[in-house]
């Protein structure tokens, strides 16, 4: 009887689970060739934080990115985080929903790794994070789409293979100055003085774990690494163009100075000093 009862109750539980929708996300993490050490460490940090991710070897090509979809399929992944390095210094991030899109391209700035000594927090490897989005994400423009995509990528699905059953860190996304600032904090529920557990929620505090970086949105594509552009950021200028403008400014400085010099010379040449009548009176 007992076994029959057990089997029945189990069945009912299973049915409940089936009825609830769940997300089974896996993320493919990879970079292009020519990536610098700092950015490589950033990918390493993300891999540690996302137990449902699969890190792949560096991608050789920078042109035919649609190949990534096949790669994702091979790895059983439905999300892709692809870090594209250009000119060693510039890092771009593609966040994509694998076979059908959308995909979003960001410019990554101001990268700080987890191993930096300023960031003193720590958390369990593979524990599920809370995700905190700034109120600015709540619009009908590109930010809502970004939010839903990030929810898929950065939230660890329940019961992921390497995940831990507790919540001890929180990832935050805030929109400041038209960019998305990403941070990762440890949730400390201990009194810093006594070391005892806090009973009051007000005593909760946060310590940053890292990594931290800033994403500047460039474009949203309808497909995954292909398709028409749904959104293009008018305020984005490529770092190369900015550098070029800066160089122009530098050279303009020199040109201005040389022109001014020439003008001064011409001015001095044009002045004719009147002759002094009494110059040789006392000679």
């Amino acid at each position: 009887m007992a076994s029959i009862y057990k089997s029945f109750t189990k069945e009912s539980k299973k049915n409940e689970e089936v009825s609830k929708p769940r997300i089974r996300n896996r993320v493919l993490l990879l970079s292009s060739r020519g990536i610098s050490t700092r950015y490589r460490y950033l990918i390493k940090d993300l891999e540690a934080l996302l137990p449902h991710s699969k890190k792949d070897a560096k991608l050789d090509t920078k042109k035919n990115l649609e190949i990534l979809n096949e790669l994702a399929e091979l790895n059983n992944c439905n999300n892709i985080l692809f870090f594209e390095a250009r000119k060693h210094d510039d890092l771009y991030l593609w966040a994509s929903r694998a076979p059908s899109g959308p995909s979003i391209k960001f410019h990554v700035q101001n990268v700080h790794n987890m191993s930096e000594l300023k960031l003193t927090g720590n958390c369990l490897k593979g524990s599920r994070p809370l995700l905190s989005f700034d109120g600015n994400f709540d619009d009908d423009g590109p930010y809502m789409l970004i939010k839903t995509l990030f929810e898929q990528i950065f939230s660890v699905p329940t019961g992921a293979r390497k995940s831990k059953p507790f919540f001890d860190h929180i990832m935050s996304f805030s929109i400041i100055d038209g960019r998305i600032w990403v941070r990762n904090f440890q949730i400390v529920e201990k009194n810093p003085e006594t070391g005892g557990d806090v009973t009051n929620d007000d005593d909760m505090s946060l310590v940053e774990i890292g990594p931290r970086f800033v994403l500047h949105i460039i474009r949203i594509f309808e497909g995954s690494f292909y398709g028409r552009t749904l959104y293009e950021n008018p305020n984005f200028y490529t770092p190369a163009s900015i550098r070029a403008a800066a160089n122009r400014e530098k050279s303009a400085k020199f040109a201005n100075r040389s022109i001014a010099n020439q003008e001064l010379k011409a001015k001095i040449g044009n002045i004719n000093i009147p002759t002094d009548k009494y110059a040789d009176v006392f000679k």
Binding site: L130, D134, F137, K147, S155
Partner: peptide, 13 residues
């Protein structure tokens, strides 16, 4: 499933 939270205020710096 997602544990995603939206803050009640808009961050203005």
């Amino acid at each position: 499933e997602t544990c995603s939270l939206m803050s009640t205020f808009k961050l203005e710096i």
